[in-house]
């Protein structure tokens, strides 16, 4: 086998493949979404302005290309203004749970022993909790709100990160280069975060991107159920709930936010997969 590996390819093969078309489109969509999230409120400062006279206009009405809802709010403006709440929360949740996962997963995987047992049982416990139900209960008890939901989802999303990081760290810990680091009497923190962590980055980043998509859907679901954001806030999930009543008068009120949620979630997944693949090729053996 080894013969094939060595003569089949040049010793160093830089993989500079062109950007796949699907990933290019996904990156474009995400770039637009980020722009809308950053500047949406500046472009449409009064997206949530109600205009009783313009109640439930169909798409194509003058001044309202996608029509309005029953309170006379412009669908397009609301969708653009809602991007911020749709992106910021999920990204913070994904990054937060990733950080939790990296710290706890690395400790569990490298230190083993009682710490591993403690952390692993804790993740088992969290995995047994249904995410949406817990969010609804906590919102009910604590009065809800966007940031309460963010904090809760960080905790509830962390088990998958912890498990994935732990598994990656366990696999790397058995490699001779880790023993070589131990032979140099390097501190355990240096071994964990300088030697092991870079070798599990691709796992961590791929999982983080997946979590952005999951969290986006979770947020929208919560808003749809009325426990995410406060009424009157620009938010896709909220828009979806409000639009249900006028689905037949103005279908855009429902389909626009729904399509946006699906499109962004799919694009995040595509880009996440691609980044993960790229990262896992860094330092990879040429085999």
């Amino acid at each position: 086998m080894s013969d094939i590996r060595v003569i089949g390819v040049a010793p160093v093969r830089r993989r500079r493949r062109r950007l796949p078309i699907g990933v290019a489109i996904a990156l474009g969509v995400l770039a637009l979404a980020v722009l809308a999230a950053a500047f949406g409120k500046l472009i449409f400062p009064d997206a949530m302005h109600q205009d009783i006279l313009a109640s439930t206009l169909p798409p194509g009405s003058p001044g309202h290309p996608l029509g309005t809802d029953e309170l006379g709010r412009d669908i397009l403006q609301m969708a653009v203004a809602g991007t911020a709440s749709a992106l910021v929360g999920p990204v913070i949740v994904a990054i937060g749970s990733m950080l939790l996962g990296v710290v706890m997963g690395t400790l569990a995987g490298y230190e083993r022993g009682w710490l591993d047992t403690l952390i692993s049982r804790w993740t088992d416990l969290l995995l047994a909790v249904p995410v949406l139900l817990a969010a609804i209960v906590v919102s009910g008890v604590m009065g809800g709100g966007y940031w309460v939901t963010v904090a809760l989802l960080i905790v509830l999303f962390s088990p998958s990160d912890i498990r994935i990081v732990r598994a990656g760290v366990l696999e790397q810990s058995a490699r001779p280069y880790i023993e070589a680091a131990q032979m140099l009497s390097l501190s355990r923190w240096r071994v964990m975060f300088r030697h092991i962590l870079p070798n599990v980055t691709s796992l961590v980043v791929t999982n983080m991107m997946l979590n952005v998509a999951f969290a986006l859907v979770a947020f929208s679901s919560l808003s749809f159920l009325g426990v995410g954001v406060a009424p009157g806030t620009a938010d896709w999930g909220r828009q979806l709930t409000d639009g249900r009543a006028i689905m037949f008068q103005n279908p855009a009120a429902v389909f626009v936010p729904a399509l946006l949620i699906v499109a962004v979630a799919v694009c995040v997944n595509l880009v996440g997969d691609w980044i993960g693949q790229r990262l896992s090729q860094v330092g990879e053996e040429v085999r």
Binding site: R175, P176, Y177, E179, A180, A181, H195, P198, N199, V282, G283, E284, E285
Partner: peptide, 11 residues
């Protein structure tokens, strides 16, 4: 160590 392929940190 024995295995030159895994005794150096690839990153």
């Amino acid at each position: 160590f024995q295995d030159p392929y895994s005794s150096l940190n690839p990153m």
